[in-house]
Write a protein that binds this DNA or RNA. Structure first.
Lengths: 273, 273
DNA sequence: ATAGTAGTTCCATTATTCGGAACTTGATTT
DNA sequence: AAATCAAGTTCCGAATAATGGAACTACTAT
């Protein structure tokens, strides 16, 4: 259903163009990075909808920049440059740095996994994590993007937006029914956001993954326009809704503490209010 | 010493141009991402050496693409798009996937930290890691780049290159004296690479960081031109050189096993040999 | 008021990109 | 062995987007 479109060879293979030349290049990069394995020229041609000549040039530029690697069988894979750039940007992120000890503390209190996430478009991106046990994949999850409308941090972050912004964003959201508890439309979600605004915290009642629950609280990142949030997540068999309700207060307090500390350490750009 | 250059406003502020338009954009992106904190327009102007008009357009394109974020005080920070792209490229990396259980096994055998790294230009990039204990920063290190000439994996990977390639690469390497054991020039390193080729393993004798040692073995990634390696690392007070020598065999064997399994699972692009 | 600094916009020029079509290269079929 | 097909690469005139010096605006400090 993602690309069963036919006949019309309109420039719609997938990724929406973007800002001129750079936009095209990044769209092609994303097409390769998003795919499962190495992609041959023809695969990318189909996924990106670019004309042959253009695509060929874009790919060779991306390879020259180290953003892609070309294998011996001519197929393309993500290059290492991306990983290095991301590492640098992650390790110098001051907001994450401010939040870290608070996440740690929440983890010690609850014994469950704690996340820090930031809203980007209709998704929330996980930026840090303190795990309950060394779960199989280390470091996994960081950089992962999940839909905002069905995750605790996502809904908490949405509650920070102004109503017009929020509605515009939900209009662009596709409501995929992950579980039987997942919101089916903007209507019910909008009602819940009202509650979240009032309570100062949000729950994920197995909306994204069955058997997984969380409590989250929003954080407005000082100095940016960004909406973020933190959450405590656990498996349903171990963490009851009552337990989550009890944890809501410490989660809210941690969020407030992070916002406060961030306001001081990275807050007012140069001038005051 | 990084930018005390004067008078001549030559296009040399820092990052070397790159491939046309995309190259410039990525160079600017890197300038921001590499910096410590948020960068104001003027800071980037100095670091990138681009003309004002050009830089301004480049930056706004990068912001539109989500690769940079502009704060309220107008300064620029790395955006979240980079993290998401890197996460996708990391989590679908088949070579890492093949190597992972072998790293785990090496960790169980030695009790020390195990790394997987890939050579990129004159640096090795850490792609996976199994830690001895939950060291402060989680997931840290992944995506980090260290000089090849003074790290175990780096030197192991170098030993896979042909002599002309190796020499060309070392010509571009700057030999920074991190510790008293760090190679000071290509000459001594070339001699050591000979040994590494013969032995099949490399040591880091506190060459990058004082009090840190490791044994490493090289892996040629099948299907790519890439040179990689794995290592076991530990603090000098706990891990003697004798201990490292004893671990050399299992490390070499793990490397061989990874190479073999990789050759089957991601090896011959489409045709045979 | 005045000078200075930081960021933004303008626009004629120029260099890049664009993309259809022709051209290799290598495998598969008749 | 010739013919067909598929995949990737190269070409080049036309179109477009990038270029960058200079003028402009908004603040701040003097």
């Amino acid at each position: 259903m993602t690309m069963t479109n036919e006949t019309m060879a309109a420039p719609e293979g997938r990724g929406e163009a973007g800002t001129g030349t750079l936009g095209k290049a990044i769209a092609v990069l994303e097409a390769v990075v998003t795919a499962d394995g190495p992609q041959r020229f023809t695969d990318i041609l189909a996924r990106s909808g670019q004309p042959r000549g253009t695509l060929h040039r874009l790919l060779s530029h991306l390879v020259e920049e180290g953003l892609l690697i070309q294998r011996r069988d001519l197929s393309y894979e993500p290059g290492l440059r991306l990983l290095t750039l991301a590492y640098r940007s992650w390790s110098t992120n001051r907001f994450r740095d401010v939040a870290e000890p608070h996440l740690q503390r929440l983890h010690e209190l609850t014994g469950e996994t704690v996340h820090l996430g930031i809203l980007r478009e209709t998704e929330i991106v996980y930026v840090d994590k303190v795990e309950s046990r060394q779960t199989v994949r280390m470091s996994s999850q960081i950089g992962k993007a999940s839909p905002a409308y069905c995750t605790g941090i996502g809904k908490a972050a949405l509650s920070l937006l102004g109503q017009p912004e929020l509605e515009h964003l939900l209009a662009r959201t596709e409501f995929h029914p992950f579980t039987s508890h997942t919101h089916r439309s903007a209507a019910t979600l909008l009602a819940e956001v009202e509650e979240i605004r009032r309570d100062g915290h949000a729950f994920d009642r197995e909306e994204h993954e069955a058997e997984i629950r969380c409590v989250a609280a929003p954080i407005a990142i000082p100095g940016s326009e960004l909406a973020a949030g933190i959450s405590v997540t656990g498996p349903a068999y171990r963490v009851s809704m009552e337990q989550l309700v009890a944890w809501a207060t410490p989660v809210r307090e941690a969020a407030r503490a992070i916002a406060e500390e961030a306001a001081i350490r990275l807050g007012p750009g140069r001038s005051g209010p």
